[in-house]
């Protein structure tokens, strides 16, 4: 399909400007959609069909919403719409490339950090074995406090509660928590050396 003559384009533009003719917008799609899409698809950076259609749709809708922005003395309507569609397609293409690059980079990071499936199994077995050793080495009353330490808990109050310490002045409580914590860490270190 070819672009209409300049006179036909101008007549269509006049109909669009009036905004009281229901079929004018449909005719804009009929007249311009195919030839502009063909121009986009012949360009160096050939967009995918869907991208080309979306770019032309967006530009035609934008024109139909604001037809007064087109200045007839500057260029033909077909040139104006085609130029805008090319810019729209270029923006879409760049956005797609950027998105794909981000996804690729993210994928590479995940790939680097992920543990190999067989290694993951080995770790599970080692952890299971280690937990058995810890349960044997650490007394029942210390297990709650030990669990909190492994989770990174640093609050004196929380640790004191898990260690079943009596109510003490703050300074003394902190010292008792530290003493118990050091004792547990020493036990952990000893198990590590034995393994």
């Amino acid at each position: 399909m070819r672009f209409p003559s300049q006179a036909e384009e101008q007549a269509l533009h006049e109909r669009v400007l009036k905004k009281n003719e229901a079929l004018a917008s449909q005719d804009v799609f009929r007249v311009f959609m195919d030839p502009i899409t063909r121009v986009l698809c012949r360009s160096r950076r050939r967009p995918e069909d869907d991208e080309a259609y979306d770019a032309v749709c967006d530009v035609l809708m934008e024109y139909l919403e604001n037809p007064e922005r087109y200045q007839a003395h500057r260029s033909r309507l077909s040139s104006y719409l085609t130029r805008n569609a090319e810019m729209q397609a270029r923006d879409t293409h760049r956005a797609r490339e950027a998105r794909q690059r981000r996804e690729r980079e993210f994928g590479e990071v995940i790939e680097l950090r992920a543990t190999a499936p067989n290694r993951s199994l080995e770790i599970n077995v080692e952890v299971g074995h280690l937990m058995g050793r810890l349960e044997q080495a650490i007394q029942e009353r210390d297990r709650a406090a030990f669990g909190l330490i492994l989770q990174g808990e640093r609050s004196t109050d929380a640790l004191a509660k898990a260690m079943n310490l009596p109510t003490l002045p703050e300074k003394e409580l902190r010292r008792e928590v530290k003493r118990n914590r050091d004792r547990l860490m020493k036990t952990l270190g000893r198990i590590g050396k034995e393994e």
Binding site: F29, M33, D49, D50, Y53, D54, V56, C57, D58, L60
Partner: peptide, 10 residues
Amino acid sequence: PDWLERAALR
């Protein structure tokens, strides 16, 4: 045409 449904949606 192929684009008709997409245009209607847009």
